[in-house]
Design a protein around this nucleic acid. Structure first.
Length: 323
DNA sequence: GTCGTTACGGTTGAT
DNA sequence: GAATCAACCGTAACG
């Protein structure tokens, strides 16, 4: 029945195939750092424990809460530069084998092991491009490369934290927990489906470096500038914008999850289960009493520590209180 | 009871 | 513009 989402066993709302909102991802990491066990986080946020585990594992590994880049194809390895080198090798030694070319590309540093073309690819290049070249002459001056592109080792979309590819110009270097290690096609996040401006987007649009303080500041501004509207009411009043967030703010993760404030799950009856993701969380969390601003549970004032091991024994007192 | 892992069905974006 | 492919997603279930 739900056109925009489903409800999991814990009563949480999700969209199959789509990442959880950044606010919830952030909340998961936050709670974990407060010493709350993943199973409790799972129950509290109504996110499957597998998902909690996955997000925490990724955070520990990469320091980022953001989901990976969805979609797209693998970067092409047969860049003009590679083709050029293959042609050179072939011209120098017409009898050279494809596998020898492959070895030379690696040995000469033209490619590394990650973007080294396969032997079959090289053969295809030899057959289709280099072969034609001997008949036509100028390969690269022709129409085949009307828009020469720099030979990047990888598509920027696939650049990972360990990648040697520097940030693109204009892309701020982001600190630890919010680091965006690759350009994230944010348009496909649940958050964006709902019209919530993603953290990523804000980061990109920010010319200055991102900080939690700024996020807090921005969120605070949004909170004050836009009157609270019940998610239900808003959805009711604005069917087209029923998933939208306050104009540009990130939802306060705390509002999702203060355990005592989460009512027993009632299957959504009117709008859609996505109201749970609305920034105006009153539809989902009735009577929510978010922690005072600046508390350890506030996602906007929290400076997440670098990845750390989850301490099962030392549970933060405040965390205990929320459980 | 907890948690890591994985099959599954889904979305996305480049080709 | 549709189809294909390979990346990713979160859930559910298993051990």
């Amino acid at each position: 029945e739900p056109a925009f989402g489903e409800v999991n066993q814990l009563g949480g709302v999700f969209v199959n195939g789509r990442p959880l909102p950044n606010a919830i991802r952030l909340r998961i990491v936050e709670l974990a750092q407060l010493g709350i066990r993943p199973c409790d986080i799972s129950r509290q946020l109504r996110v499957s424990h597998g998902c909690v585990s996955k997000i925490l594992a990724r955070y520990n590994e990469t320091g980022s809460i953001l989901p990976g880049a969805i979609g797209g194809s693998k970067p092409r390895v047969t860049t003009p530069t590679v083709v050029k080198h293959i042609r050179t090798y072939k011209q120098r030694d017409p009898g050279i084998f494809a596998w020898e070319i492959r070895d030379r590309l690696l040995a000469d540093g033209v490619c590394d092991k990650f973007n080294l073309p396969s032997v079959s690819s090289i053969s295809r290049i030899l057959r289709n491009k280099i072969g034609n070249l001997s008949q036509q002459g100028q390969y690269e001056s022709g129409k085949q490369a009307p828009h020469p592109q720099p030979a990047l080792p990888y598509n920027h979309l696939y650049s990972y934290p360990t990648s040697k590819v520097p940030n693109p110009p204009g892309m701020p270097t982001l600190p630890g927990h919010m680091a965006m290690h690759r350009i994230w096609p944010s348009s496909h996040s649940v958050t964006d489906i709902l019209g919530i401006r993603s953290i990523t987007e804000q980061q990109i649009s920010d010319s200055s470096s991102f900080s939690s303080a700024k996020l807090e500041e921005r969120s605070a501004r949004n909170r004050t500038s836009s009157p609270a509207v019940s998610g239900v009411d808003k959805a009711h009043l604005e069917p087209e914008a029923k998933y939208s967030q306050t104009p540009s703010g990130l939802p306060t993760a705390s509002s999702y999850v203060t355990a005592p404030s989460i009512p027993p799950y009632h299957p959504p009856t009117q709008v859609s289960p996505y109201m749970g993701y609305s920034a105006t969380t009153s539809a989902y969390v009735t009577g929510a009493t978010p922690p005072a601003s600046g508390s350890a549970l506030s996602p906007h004032s929290c400076d997440l520590a670098p990845p750390l091991a989850f301490n099962r024994d030392a549970v933060h007192p405040l965390a205990t209180a929320t459980l």
